[in-house]
Structure formats: C-alpha cells, structure tokens
Amino acid sequence: MLAFDPFYFAQQLLNGLTIGSTYALIAIGYTMVYGIIGMINFAHGEIYMIGMYSAFVAITGMAAFGIEFLPVIFVGALLFAMLISSTVGWAVERVAYRPLRGGNRLIPLISAIGMSIFLQNYVRLFQGSSDVAIPHLLSGGYTFGAADGFQTTLSYMQILIFVTTIVSMGALTLFIAKSRMGRACRAVAEDLKMANLLGIDTNRVISFTFVIGAALAAVAGVLLGMYYGVTNPYIGFIAGLKAFTAAVLGGIGSLPGAMLGGIILGITEAMTSAYFATEYKDVVAFGLLVLILLFRPTGILGKPEVEKI
C-alpha cells in the first residue's frame, strides 16, 4: 500500500460496518437462545437462509402483481420473511429441541446440527441448489472524496442496513428492558428453575426467544437479500458460523456483546482484506477470537462465570 488514504480507510470501515451489522443481527438469535437455555442453536443460520428465500418469494411475488413502490416492497418482504422465519424457528424448537431439554448439553447440539442439514436440504430439494438472483431494488448513494483520488461511496442500501439494524436492536433492547415478556426472559436467563417456581411459563419464554431470534435473522435475510441480490440453500451455514463467532467474541448471552462482536468481526475482515490479503481474512478473524478469549475467557462483554458448587 502507498501512503495512508483516509478515504480508502473510511470506505473499508463502511464495508466492515455493513457486514458487521448483519452478523450482529444474526448473532442476536444465538446469544438469546444461549443466554436462556445454554444451547448452541446450530440451525439458526438456516433460519436466516429461509428468511432470505421468503424475502425473495415476497419480492418476486409483489413484482408479479405490479407493486413497484419501494417502501411497500421492503416492508412487505420484511413482514413476510419475519412471519415465515419465526414460524420455522418456533417449529424447530418444538420438534427438535424441546423433547431434549434437561439432558446432556451435547444432545441438543447434535440435534441442531441434524436440523441444520435437514433444513438446508429441504430448501435445496424444492428450490434447487443453484443461486437465484433478484435485480437491484435500491441503487445509488453518496460519494465523498477528491475527484482524482479515491472516492468513498456510501450507498442508500448501506444506509438502509444501518438504520434497520439500529432500529431493530433498539426495539429489542427496549422490549427486553421494559415489557413483561422481556422481564420474564431475563428472569429465565438468570435461573430457569427459579423462574419456573415463581410461576413464569418458561416453555412460552423459550419459544418466544426462538421466535424473536428467528425474526431478527429474517430481518438480516431481507437486508442482505436486497444488498447482494443473491441467495442459495447453502448461504446460511457460513453466515451462521460467522454470527456464532461474533456472539462468542462479544460474550455469548449478552445482547450488546452480540452487537459489538458482530461489528468487530466485520471490521476485522474488511481491514484484513484491505491492508493484508483477502485469503487470510477468516484466519485473522478466528485468530482474533482465540486471542480475545485467551485474555477474556468469556468474551468482551460476557459476565465472568461463577463456579457454582
């Protein structure tokens, strides 16, 4: 690289923030489920993928009816994808995880891996394994920088991603902090047995957690579906892995941690590509994770675990 170019740096920072926000949205699902029942929901990435497919179905469906007004398309796709994804999230919990609750922690994990393989192939079987693509719905953006130097672009789509992410996160934080259900969630996360004794319907709270996590994954699905314009049945796996890494990085079980972890991971990847080599971005991302965990064994914002006797 030549001299340090602030506009180039800003561009890479924006790129990192964009991808990081969506990691964060998916990571919420992991972190909430983990916080409450202490299981890694490996099928979460597949729920994100189903959200993306639902968005594509909604967008092409609306196009067939001649709906072209963007806000309608966006909100319509968002609602439809959230509905489908949360239903799938609810069903997965009911079918594959609830019967296993209370046993060894590894058992739901294997069930989740099985569910992940199942969902991936379910979609592949009916929608085909090749990529499907939709055209740009929102193009254009702002440009900064000298005309002869490097120009930073901030697309409208990126702005939409930031705004939607911030709004969803804010709404969720508020909901967890203020609402009755949110209080119940916190109580269950604190101590499931005790919450049960105090008359909280823990089954309902757990179902609710899966539904919320799935809905946020669907939001990420819609945003990235519109941003990249492409999906396939395998897209959820790698995205899930990254989001899971983000959740652990930030401290699994902690909502702000998931957000922070997602953004750190996104920026790390972008900066590795920018100033080092793209082929090592995953190595650096995982290396960073290992490093952070070595110094903070429960992640950046994770609560240190109390050893209960």
């Binding site: 296993l100 739901p108 069930s111 099985g114 199942f118």
Partner: peptide, 19 residues
C-alpha cells in the same frame, strides 16, 4: 436426492428417541 435430507432427519430423530 433425499439422502442428505434423511441423514439430517435421522440425526434429530435418534437424539429424541435415544438421547
């Protein structure tokens, strides 16, 4: 076509049936 679908399903069913 269905082989991986079944593989995933068997993993889930086995865990429920014989955890």
């Amino acid at each position: 076509e269905y082989r991986m679908l079944m593989f995933g399903l068997v993993m889930v069913v086995m865990m429920i049936w014989r955890p």
